[in-house]
Simulated scan of single mutants.
Amino acid sequence: MFTAYVVVTAVTIVANTAAAIADFAGAKAVLANADQVGVAPSWVPWLGALKAAGAAGLVLGLLGVRILGLAAATGLVLFFLGAVAVHVRARVFGNIVFPGGFLALAGASLALAAAH
């Protein structure tokens, strides 16, 4: 169980770090997606900061600060529930797999951290 926790959480960290970097860089795909779902471009760096904070909290959780790991995983679950909701509200289903995948990773990280 510990190995699954470490592997899933590490994948979640890498995925969210990459997404945060793309947000900070203003990647064309990120800005196009934000436009499709009605998110102002000025929000994108702030959303990247939340992803980066979640990834950092997961790292701290892996390093033994359990409460921060749980809080970070919970925050990422809530963040990506919101992202899925924004896609549904905007009726943009062509790329909903991305926030859905991030939600699945965050949910698995949370479940494994809680069980650990």
Rank of each mutant, 00 (worst) to 15 (best):
L103E: 01
G61N: 00
A90V: 07
P41Y: 06
G100H: 00
G57Y: 08
I96M: 13
N95H: 05
L81Y: 06
A106R: 05
F98I: 14
F93S: 02
I67V: 01
A90N: 10
F102H: 06
A72T: 08
A104N: 01
V6T: 15
G100C: 01
A53W: 03
A104K: 07
M1R: 09
L81P: 08
L58G: 04
H116K: 02
I13D: 02
A114H: 02
N33T: 08
R66C: 04
A104T: 05
A113C: 00
W43I: 06
L81R: 04
V97C: 01
V30L: 03
A104L: 15
G94E: 13
V6Y: 09
P99W: 06
A113P: 04
F80P: 00
A73P: 05
A10H: 01
G69P: 11
V39D: 04
H116G: 14
G38A: 08
L103A: 13
G61F: 11
K51N: 05
V59I: 09
A25G: 03
G54W: 11
L68Q: 05
G26E: 07
A49N: 06
L50H: 04
G101H: 09
A27K: 15
A20M: 10
V37G: 10
A22T: 03
L70F: 07
A72N: 06
I21T: 12
V97W: 15
V11D: 02
V44Y: 11
